[in-house]
Design a protein around this nucleic acid. Sequence first.
DNA 1: TCTTAAATGTTACTATATAACAACACCATT
DNA 2: AATGGTGTTGTTATATAGTAACATTTAAGA
Lengths: 144, 144
Amino acid sequence: MDKAGFIAAADLQCQRQGVKLTALRRQVLELVLAHEGVVKAYQVLADLQRERGIAAPPTVYRALDFLVEAGLLHKVDALNGYIVCSHVGCCHEGLILVCTACGRVNELEAAPALDTLRQQAAAQGFAIAQQNLLLTGLCQACRV
Amino acid sequence: MDKAGFIAAADLQCQRQGVKLTALRRQVLELVLAHEGVVKAYQVLADLQRERGIAAPPTVYRALDFLVEAGLLHKVDALNGYIVCSHVGCCHEGLILVCTACGRVNELEAAPALDTLRQQAAAQGFAIAQQNLLLTGLCQACRV
DNA sequence: TCTTAAATGTTACTATATAACAACACCATT
DNA sequence: AATGGTGTTGTTATATAGTAACATTTAAGA
Ligand SMILES: [Zn+2]
Ligand SMILES: [Zn+2]
Ligand SMILES: [Zn+2]
Ligand SMILES: [Zn+2]
């Protein structure tokens, strides 16, 4: 999906959820989209400062939190970063592969595997929340 | 496994790996063991300072990194914390369940599910590294 | 003993994230 | 139009997490 298409889909998704994709949030989303792969909050902050002068961390973190909450971005804990969701619209639980060499990501559906894991967890009395599975490794390009 | 048993097992494992569980590393390991569930580096630092006076962040981070490397602890990225491995000795790839309410963890074997995921990833040209799978949710006690 | 590599100490810093409150914008009701 | 509530953004300050670089000490071999 191209960038404009993604923004349109994001708009739609926010409407459906009854939340507002404000100018600031859209701008932050575009800044994340402008990168390939994982982006860090302080990178977005720097970009934002280039575009609109002054900006402080909470501005960016709030926008990023909102976008994650809205299902438009995913947080990549292992790298303290964020990626654009590649399945906007389809309420999904997926497998996110992150290349530790180049930061590129690949997002797959992994419902079956997650079901298995959920059952395994349930057998221990543990209710796992809805979430993405995050695995690191090397993408084809980086495998030499 | 009780605490003393764990330390003994840790000693053995380090010997087998040809690495040294020094006094400092052992002390840090004991400090982590003293907590139930996830512990944070700066908590360990504070504990260490109580026990031996002055101590600086690198001291703790080095010890924690060593212990993770040696397979005695696991890093919990989602919480910026560390947990004691409950499968010391059996070189494992597991599923780690973390309760977001109380911080307690439950570590399971999940080789079959991981194999599935690894194959799925391989189909995309992606080689996922050896790693634990980390999922958050609620433990039985915290489910009300 | 002498040499060397590993481990630890120390200082200073970078990076990541949030609390708390103020100001503003938007929408609904009077 | 004025009022008041709610959500959003601005602003300042601070909390939390992690590392670089170099000095010093310790342990292991030759
Ligand atoms: Zn997604
Ligand atoms: Zn790559
Ligand atoms: Zn383990
Ligand atoms: Zn719990």
